[in-house]
Design a protein around this nucleic acid. Structure first.
Length: 601
RNA sequence: GCGCCUGUAGCUCAACCGGAUAGAGCAACGGCCUUCUAAGCCGUAGGUUGCAGGUUCGAUUCCUGCCAGGCGUGCCA
């Protein structure tokens, strides 16, 4: 395994254990179910997990559960009758004001006033650690981006990068130990084409009139690399043109693959060991560029893993030997095949071609074995949607190697479609006119990029509206959320000319604040942790975006009708306490998204 | 053909492993700044959750079949 670069992950704030009200209520009902089981009234298979939810309608109290509805049939009771029995057995809790049975058998729980604002106290006590889960002890690896180092990242990679980074942050916040990895495809045919492209441009730059291959890399950066090659090696890599071009297959739409392959053969033959020079230069420069690009995008990796290291270390041969031993391989038409159909694949897959070269899939198999050998509990792959067809074979490989395929999760990210002025921005890799991630960042900024990329479910196409992303209005969700944060900071600045803020005084008088708005805010703040947990479990960071937007909306609503810096210091500090809690949650959430939380706008 | 994904307000999307009256934003219309940021807020209107069945006390959610759209289906990477 070769480590091409190691980047430390951000230091995480210490974990502070504190169960939310919802978790406490859930425990109470679980305890009641335990009693029913102990008495033999409820059987193991009939038992369902307790589900408590915050109510939407205040008439239903603050929390509600459907336990009675779920267990009524198994216990042979009417739901409301069971609900009554459960409520009678419910242990006392100092912050529960009342319990009611409603509708078909829901149990509604109403909290005391001071309990309602408990999340605000918790939030200010825990600060930047608020929302983080207790350590689960699970080691999770997230592999993402992993774009071929053959050119700059484009906007499609950007979405994978934003998604993977945010997902990793969320998994970490949910208490998992997370490592992130970029798989560098530094072996294989595409890399050879890259090296050849650079070398052909090099020859051109030295004055040889050549027809650049249709199948070569067209971007201007190839010429830049060729220029650098001249700078570092002068004409020392030049070879007689005739020896290079005499055996070339004719170029054309139909034959461009054969044409570029014949170039590669010719160059390797003519240059010998020196073939590595243009190849390595291109690889190093482009990979450095990608790393810088991602770094500026706020995306870093625990590790960069080299595909070539799998070849040189013999890992591919080892992995194939494992499959061979298990009877999963067979020879056919001179090639070596993996019997993936045994695990539900449409057809078997070649792992070693008739010319002796390993296929890309062979590297993938070795990489899977390598990952599992590192002892992760769960492996997450983030792929572009065009890799859809590979899921089955990769899972098949995991199974055939003897690993549990359920520990391997593949998440597809659909491409983003850019819109400018209501028109779709055309992108084409072939013509080299694709929009790079760097261009996108420069146009709309990192904050809007990171947010827009993850604001929709990853497996859905994303309409990325460039005009909206750069607009400074409430229509732009990034600005809307950041604005709420900045507004709070500005109010806190206003304290400078006033008697100093007293947190204890604020907390003491929290319950005396009038208005439903504060209760809504407190309830939402109390849901932050479970929102993070849900987003992490379902691998859906967009849930955090919606949450933050709603929290910001609640704050704006309250702020608009309530002055915070009032003369009554008890009221003033109570309100500022709420505002500070909102600010804290917004900051924590934005941080997970990789979006800044500005103090002024 | 086969496989996977998606159909929710005019548009872009939510809806917490099946819950109480399906929610936001945009677009439309009407209001709110001598007061901490109007980059904001309030209000009105907008729905047979693609269609038809099934399971359930209860279905946007689960199952089946249709309809429509997207993607995938190489000894490519």
């Amino acid at each position: 395994m070769s480590t091409l670069g190691i980047y430390g992950s951000a230091t995480l704030p210490p974990l502070i254990r504190r169960d939310t009200m919802k978790e406490q209520i859930t425990s109470l009902f679980e305890a009641v179910l335990d009693q029913l089981m102990a008495r033999g009234q409820l059987t193991e298979d009939a038992r369902r997990p307790v589900h408590v939810e915050a109510t939407r309608d205040p008439a239903h109290g603050d929390f509600a559960t459907n336990v009675a509805l779920l267990h009524a049939k198994a216990l042979g009771l009417a739901p409301r009758q069971l609900a009554e029995q459960l409520v009678n057995q419910l242990p006392n809790h100092p912050q529960i004001a009342g319990v009611e049975i409603a509708g078909p058998g829901f149990i509604n729980i109403r909290l005391k006033a001071d309990a309602l604002v408990q999340p605000i106290k918790d939030c200010l006590t825990q600060g930047s650690g608020y929302g983080r889960g207790e350590s689960t002890g699970r080691r999770v690896q997230v592999e993402y981006v992993s774009a071929n180092p053959t050119g700059p990242l484009h906007v499609g990679h950007g979405r994978g990068a934003a998604y993977g980074a945010t997902l990793s942050n969320l998994l970490s916040a949910a208490g998992h130990t997370v490592e992130t990895e970029y798989y560098v495809n530094d072996a294989g045919r595409q890399m050879s084409i890259l090296g050849a492209s650079v070398y052909i441009r090099y020859l051109e730059a030295l004055g040889h009139p050549l027809q650049f291959p249709l199948g070569g890399y067209q971007g201007a950066y190839i010429q830049d690399l060729a220029a650098e090659l001249i700078h570092t090696h002068g004409e020392s890599l030049e070879r007689p043109i005739a020896s290079l071009t005499s055996q070339l297959v004719a170029d054309g739409e139909e034959t461009k693959d054969a044409h570029i392959d014949s170039w590669i053969q010719a160059i390797k033959h003519a240059l010998g060991e020196d073939w590595r020079v243009p190849f390595d230069l291109a690889l190093t420069r482009i990979q450095d560029d990608i790393r810088d690009d991602l770094g500026e995008f706020g995306v870093t990796f625990s590790q960069w893993f080299s595909e070539a290291s799998l070849v040189s270390s013999g890992a591919i041969a080892d992995a194939l030997a494992t499959l061979e031993a298990g009877g999963h391989l067979y020879q056919h038409k001179g090639a070596l095949w993996f019997r993936s159909t045994a695990y539900g694949d449409d057809k078997d897959r070649v792992v070693q071609r008739d010319n002796g070269e390993y296929t890309y899939f062979a590297s993938d198999i070795a990489y899977i074995a390598n990952k599992f050998s590192r002892g992760y509990d769960e492996l997450i792959y983030v792929w572009g949607a065009d890799h859809h067809g590979y899921i089955t074979r990769v899972k098949a490989a995991a199974s055939a190697l003897g690993y549990d395929p359920d520990r391997l999760t593949i998440r597809l990210v659909q491409f983003a479609i850019l819109y400018r002025g209501g028109e779709r921005v055309q992108m084409s890799t072939r013509s080299g006119s694709f929009v790079t991630l760097r261009e996108l960042r420069e146009e709309v900024g990192v904050d809007a990029c990171r947010y827009f990329y993850v604001m929709r479910k990853a497996d859905q196409h994303l309409d990325f509206d460039l005009d909206l992303a750069t607009s400074q209005s409430k229509d732009n969700p990034v600005y809307y959320i950041q604005y709420a944060h900045a507004r709070i900071c500005r109010v806190l600045e206003g304290l400078q000319d006033q008697p100093s803020f007293d947190l204890t005084r604020g907390l003491t008088h929290l319950a005396s604040i009038e208005g439903q708005e504060v209760l809504d805010i407190a309830q939402q703040i109390g849901q932050f942790k479970e929102t993070l947990g849900r987003a992490a479990d379902s691998l859906e960071p967009h849930l955090l975006c919606y949450y933050l937007q709603e929290l910001a909306a609640s704050f704006h609503r309250w702020y608009n009708g309530t002055r915070l810096l009032v003369d009554d210091l008890a009221q003033r500090d109570a309100r500022l306490t709420v505002a500070q809690a909102v600010r804290q949650v917004l900051a924590n959430g934005l941080s997970l998204l990789g979006v800044s939380a500005p103090e002024a706008m």
